[in-house]
Design a binder for these strands. Structure first.
Length: 874
DNA sequence: GCGGACTGCTTACCT
DNA sequence: ACAGGTAAGCAGTCCGCG
């Protein structure tokens, strides 16, 4: 049966069997509108709709799917009509289970069925018993669930997730809803892309082609534009420093602002005192609606929200939505008129998808790989300043004390920024979320709330289901054994990672950087790394050992994770990277493919690491260790080969080698050699006009042929280095950028020396604002958690709490100065310029530049610059 | 009591 | 809540020192 979006029409239950209507109660069921619904189906049934989400309806005891229709811009809800039930597995035979007291008298258990599965760890067919139950809570989630009573498998997969897997539904894919059935819609793919894809498939066998094609179809399909609204609440609080609590919602909502993809720009304002005049809002870039009654305001806000299939917030999971929900209840609105699902950690909307951008931007993979660590504090202000170039409105006073005009401006700006965070760069964030949903086959709601580990886990479980494997328990994988062979170099780590080649100190001209493209994912693909394929049960595979370990790798069957990672890697490298660079496409189209390519990279980059994370249900150290072992093996072997061929390797890190003036032909031969001997791709990453290394690893700068400067790891770049020092550092690099030849260096060294001196004198003279010397350090954890030592930024934080009555939380940055007075540090705003410990800063400046000066052969103390014998590096 | 050698903690970076 | 490797600064500890 097809149910229309309640936001638009009313819930309709066409064709509901009678007993089901009974079960589902009265909620939303309205037979009067069913005729309207039928008309709707015949008229619109053949249209493409995108699967975006799914959930479980506890009243109806059914899974329902959320399809987005880009033409009407509505969500269509689809309730299960197949009688699918929640279930889990037991390895006990059916007959024995039937005698088990937890099964026998259990009213929730509906069916026991024998089923054939494959035991992944033993690679054997086994019989299991599928236990079907009336509702998901019978399986897991309460203290009385089966999961707590007997040994069961696959009991912690969420029910709607199981449903998507079992019905072979693909999130983000286009479907048609015709005659009460979900059918996959034909996917049209750009011709150019089709050509590239079919070229890539040339050498594949039929199975590989099928898998490859499927991934291309999933990922290349159009992404619709999502109709959405961003919203934001403001609360009136009597006391100044009280943070309103979502669990009580005891303070009134004074404003609700909306910014929609359809151009909606509105603030609903609550006029508590009855003294607000409409004409105060002339000239605003949004509408203001004034309410004398808070209940009318929230009712109106709810109506607006429900017009949109996607609701976007910043922190709506833990604040805006739960507060709004509670407040509505406090104001006497019946619960059943409030289609929210407010959980302990998240807030969902029944009529569509709620995207909480706080959760999304908090994600470390998103922050790092998708946005290059451009923001570090997860706040609306910080993120929008860094990604949009515009931040929140700064208030001088407490929000509850400002006048209505400023209040609405402030409020609207918040929802405007929230909306723009989803719209900038041609809806970059929406595309990213959709692409990750496609890769992980996870609902959009879950994608933006969960980590990369969960994205991968979800898809890996689906591979199990498709291949007929029973998902093993964590303990089973742990018990499988295969001890660790390497002892970690670093304390607190579990195994050995990558190699860093010691750099050759000095300046090197004409350096070619080669790297192994996606080294670890490629290793996983080529060397068949998965939790079940490393140390597999077959005797005949034992000879295929991972070099330097006692681990062996399966030669009979393709490991599940190896296959998955291989497919994603191939489709990224062979299709989407090409498309993102294709000259035949316009900028916008290239950017579309670039987002896909980037999203795949995020997932690939984490695919090895998850094997070393205890949170991962397929955690298996021998798999992680084998990947890095192969990695070290490959790079060392390649390095040796380079030297044997007369090439000089001056540096290397994990998957890269810096080669000094290699011949073009040598590089081509090298790539061929790598392909032949290690089955991996080696490519030229970049060419530096020159690179300068100090003796430190992960610490250099290089100037490319086009004149851009790469700075890696140097303290002068780090964000906790004082501004004044960073600025001097930048000036120096700008000067070094101009160096073209060895001879240019003489002049450059003199200039650099002068620039450092100048900065030093500036500090000594006191020719600076105190803010320029401020050090800012992130408070990595809650204040109370610093029990071993008291670092300087913690001293500052404690001082703020003690003396300024401020509350400091993890993730905040402490901004302070080093002083000659008492504890040696002081928050910048309470520090006098006279207290500043000048010699300390001179020392800091010197040590910052030391890294750079070491590299270019300069020593500060001397009058005349000391030259390094450049010739020796040529 | 004080300073140097050392270890450990913490942050920020690289791949 | 993907991993390990590296640099740097400071906090804290131990030891020698008539």
């Amino acid at each position: 049966m097809l149910l229309r979006n309640p936001a638009v029409g009313r819930l309709v239950a066409e064709g509901f069997p009678l007993f089901m209507q009974h079960l589902s109660g009265t909620k939303g069921v309205d037979t009067d509108t069913s005729r309207e619904m039928i008309a709707d189906v015949s008229h619109n049934g053949g249209r493409d709709v995108f699967l975006v989400s799914a959930d479980y309806d506890g009243d109806r005891r059914k899974v329902y799917l959320k399809f987005y229709d880009p033409r009407t811009e509505e969500i269509r809800l689809w309730y299960d009509d197949t009688g699918h039930l929640p279930y889990c597995y037991s390895r006990e035979p059916k007959e024995k289970l039937m005698r088990n007291p937890h099964i026998k008298g259990n009213k929730s258990v509906l069916r026991l069925e024998k089923e054939r599965k494959i035991d992944a760890l033993r690679d054997k067919k086994i019989w299991v018993t599928k236990i079907s139950a009336t509702d998901p809570l019978a399986i897991g989630g309460t203290g009385f669930s089966l999961r707590e009573k007997i040994d069961v498998w696959e009991a912690d997969i969420k029910y709607y997730v199981n449903y998507l897997f079992d019905r072979d539904l693909q999130v983000g894919r286009a479907y048609k809803l015709i005659d009460g059935k979900i059918t996959g819609s034909t996917i049209y793919i750009d011709q150019h892309l089709q050509q590239i894809a079919s070229d890539a498939m040339q050498d594949m066998n039929e199975d590989e082609k099928a898998a490859f094609n499927q991934w291309v179809e999933i990922l290349a399909a159009d992404i619709p534009s999502f109709r959405r609204v961003a919203f934001d609440l403001e609360i009136y609080t009597e006391e100044r420093n009280r943070i309103p609590m979502a669990t009580h919602a005891s303070d009134p909502i004074v404003s609700v602002s909306f910014c929609g993809s359809d151009g909606l720009r509105t603030v609903l304002l609550y006029d508590r005192e009855g003294d607000i005049e409409k004409d105060q809002f002339h000239g605003t870039e949004f509408d203001v609606e004034i309410f004398r009654d808070e209940k009318k305001l929230v009712t109106s806000a709810l109506e607006i929200l429900r017009r949109y299939p996607f609701v976007v917030t910043f922190n709506g999971d833990s604040f805006d939505l739960p507060y709004f929900y509670r407040r509505c209840i406090n104001l006497g609105i019946p619960r059943k008129q409030l289609p929210f699902k407010i959980g302990r950690r998240d807030a969902r909307i029944e009529w569509g998808v709620h995207i909480d951008l706080y959760r999304f931007f908090f994600n470390r993979s998103i922050k790092g790989y998708a946005f290059g660590d451009k923001y570090d504090v997860i706040s609306l202000n910080e993120i929008s300043e860094n990604l949009l170039g515009r931040g929140k409105i700064i208030l001088d006073d407490h929000l509850s004390a400002v006048g209505p005009r400023l209040l609405v401006e402030y409020s609207f700006r918040d929802s405007e920024l929230t909306y723009e965070l989803t719209s900038f760069g041609e809806d970059l964030v929406m595309r990213l979320i959709t692409t990750i949903a496609r890769v992980s086959n996870m609902t959009l709601d879950d994608v933006c709330r969960l980590s990369v580990l969960n994205w991968i886990k979800n898809r890996v479980i689906q591979v199990h289901r498709n291949r007929g494997y029973l998902v093993p328990l964590k303990e089973e994988i742990k018990r499988k054994g295969g001890q660790r062979y390497t002892k970690p170099v670093t304390k607190g780590k579990k195994y050995v990672g990558a190699i860093v080649v010691k750099p050759e100190v000095g300046v090197h001209f004409d350096v070619c950087v080669v790297d192994f493209s996606s080294l670890y994912p490629s290793i996983m693909k080529e060397y068949n790394i998965s939790y079940e394929s490393v140390n597999c049960p077959h005797k005949e595979c034992r000879g295929t050992t991972v070099p330097g370990t006692g681990h062996w790798v399966c030669t009979l069957k393709r490991g599940m994770v190896s296959e998955l990672v291989g497919n994603i890697r191939d489709v990224r490298v062979k299709v989407f990277k090409h498309m993102a660079r294709s000259e035949a496409l316009d900028d916008e189209t290239r950017e579309f493919y670039n987002v896909i390519q980037q999203a795949l990279k995020v997932v690939l980059n984490a695919s090895y690491g998850v094997f070393g994370s205890e949170q991962f249900p397929f955690y298996y150290l021998p798999a992680a260790e084998s990947v890095t072992m192969y990695g070290r093996h490959v790079i060392q072997d390649t390095l040796a080969h380079c030297e044997a061929q007369g090439m000089k390797v001056i540096y290397g890190d994990t998957d890269s080698l810096f080669l000094q003036r290699p011949e073009e032909e040598q590089i081509a031969d090298l790539a061929e050699w790598v392909e032949k001997n290690h089955r991996l791709d080696l490519e030229i990453d970049k060419i530096y006009r020159y690179v300068a290394f100090s003796s430190r690893k992960k610490n250099y700068f290089g100037v490319t042929e086009s004149g851009t400067v790469d700075v890696k790891g140097l303290v002068g770049k780090k964000k906790n280095t004082p501004q004044l020092i960073r600025a001097a550092f930048r000036r120096v690099l700008d000067r070094l950028r101009e160096v073209q030849t060895v001879d240019d260096f003489e002049e450059a060294r003199k200039d650099v020396q002068g620039m450092v001196r100048e900065a030093e004198e500036k500090i000594l003279r006191g020719d600076f604002e105190k803010e320029e010397l401020a050090i800012s350090t992130t408070l990595g954890k809650a204040l109370a958690a610093y029990t071993k030592t008291t670092p300087q930024h913690v001293k500052v934080a404690r001082l703020l709490e003690r003396e300024e009555n401020r509350h400091v939380v993890a993730g905040e940055r402490m901004i302070y100065l080093k002083t000659t007075t008492k504890p040696g540090v002081k928050p910048v705003e309470y520090c006098n310029k006279e207290e500043i410990d000048v010699p300390k800063y001179v020392e800091l400046l010197r040590s910052t530049f030391e890294q750079l000066l070491d590299a270019i052969g300069l020593t500060l103390e001397r009058e005349a610059p000391q030259y390094s014998s450049l010739e020796s590096f040529m």
